[in-house]
Write a protein that binds this DNA or RNA. Structure first.
Ligand SMILES: [Mn+2]
Ligand SMILES: [Mn+2]
Ligand SMILES: [Mn+2]
Ligand SMILES: [Mn+2]
Lengths: 147, 147
DNA sequence: ACAAAAATGTAGCCTCGGCTTTAATTCTGT
DNA sequence: ACAGAATTAAAGCCGAGGCTACATTTTTGT
């Protein structure tokens, strides 16, 4: 045995933190596709595989597989050669993800990150921002606005 | 064609932002293992597969494969049944990652995230913090300290 | 010294998210 | 109407990062 029990771990053990980060990562693709499909439906009335793939920067078979996973998870529906639509649950996820994305970008800008960089980094960061952290960001932004 | 050219994209196109996030993610595991191996060597003089696996919260063959990748990328060395060691490049990476992790935690705390949550979220967030953003965080923390 | 325990390695399986290639279907313009 | 273009689907490849089960080697205790 090597370890002396475990460091500073009264609350979440170190392995637990890695587990959490991996779980968040597993949701990341689903979240981005849901948000993107929501965007497309709003902007152009429908979400086509080609457009999804184009905006995600992937080949269209990759988008097709992602949509298949969304469907499997009950977040989207589609029929062959028709567009993709979000279920209620999928739409709710998309909305949450969109709001969180905005908050993350705003927080980054508020602490001095250049807007362009903020937008860039937020695309990856957003998926690892917990609810607790998100609420802290919102409070910070509200307080900063009052100044 | 569907899209009306592209939204707000003078600088980094939307697909480009997703590419960037995916690239960052591809480094994440390497970064965490490098940092962990550095920690273990410092704390106990050597990094054993069992300890690496234990702290990462994975089965030991998973750690073995990660170390194999580190070796393949020139970041670590090891011989069968001996511990794992970082190359110069690996140690430099570990150091950078450790510093960035601290800065991210500090920034989160500074904007009002509970320390426990900050530590939790930072484990995933850190890998998506670009150099530009990291420097902005440092400036913010320095300014906040002066208050 | 040597048997049992612990650590490490190896093989083989899975899912996910990329990709290319090829087939099927739908849309479009004349 | 229908040929060609565009879109979508399907199949099959890859690497990464998980896992379990089993083999090998090293360490340890008597
Ligand atoms: Mn994203
Ligand atoms: Mn986003
Ligand atoms: Mn991490
Ligand atoms: Mn870390």
């Amino acid at each position: 045995m090597t370890d002396t029990a475990d460091d500073t771990d009264l609350p979440a053990s170190r392995p637990e933190r890695f587990h959490q980060a991996r779980a968040a990562q597993a949701m990341a693709v689903l979240e981005d596709y849901a948000e993107m499909i929501g965007d497309l439906i709003e902007e152009m009335g429908e979400a086509r595989i080609t457009d999804i793939a184009g905006r995600m920067g992937v080949a269209h078979p990759t988008a097709t597989k992602a949509v298949a996973r969304l469907k499997r998870e009950g977040l989207a529906v589609s029929r062959p050669y028709r567009g993709v639509f979000l279920t209620e649950e999928g739409a709710a996820l998309a909305e949450r993800v969109r709001a969180r994305h905005r908050t993350v970008v705003d927080l980054l800008i508020a602490v001095g990150v250049p807007p362009e960089t903020a937008e860039m980094d937020a695309e990856g960061l957003e998926h690892h921002v917990s609810d607790v952290t998100l609420r802290a960001f919102e409070r910070y932004l509200a307080a900063a606005a009052k100044t």
